[in-house]
């Protein structure tokens, strides 16, 4: 939003003004002489092109800002979910994070076993391998 305020709005205003001025057949001077001086064609072309460039620049910048905002929202959601323990981050857990417990059946006999049970009465470190054979 900051980008929109500080860069895009001036660009849009400038672009609209340039387009408006470029599309006018001539400049109307404020002088009292009421004289109308025809404008050179290249000035109109320059103004129109400048206006279009300003509007395109503003649109691109707004697109980037929107993408950045969506990424930030997604990241915030992911971090919030990680804090809730709903979902783990893709990157490594920081050391010291309590390992989420779970209960799953064993391959051997189907008995339900939790991570705590696996660690045993005299807990020793566990290498938890989450994978498959394909």
């Amino acid at each position: 939003m900051g980008t929109l305020l500080y860069l895009d709005i001036p660009l849009i205003v400038l672009g609209m003004l340039a387009l408006f001025a470029g599309s006018r057949p001539c400049f109307r001077r404020r002088s009292t002489s009421r004289s109308r001086k025809p404008r050179a064609p290249w000035v109109s072309v320059y103004l129109v092109l400048s206006g279009v460039a300003c509007l395109i620049g503003a649109a691109i910048d707004m697109g980037f800002a929107e993408r950045e905002r969506r990424q930030k929202v997604a990241l915030d959601e992911m971090l919030r979910a990680s804090d809730d323990g709903t979902i783990a981050p893709m990157w490594p857990f920081p050391p010291g994070t309590p390992a989420p417990d779970f209960r799953l059946p064993t391959l051997k006999d189907g008995a339900l076993v939790s991570l705590k049970t696996v660690r045993g009465s005299k807990p020793k470190p566990v290498l938890l391998v989450l994978s498959s054979f394909t």
Binding site: P92, P95, G96, P98, A99, P123, V126, L130, S131
Partner: peptide, 15 residues
């Protein structure tokens, strides 16, 4: 695939 080392206190030591 993911591997985690969980220390004796139940905290993740390496991920």
């Amino acid at each position: 695939m993911r591997l985690l080392l969980i220390d004796a206190e139940g905290k993740i030591a390496l991920d």
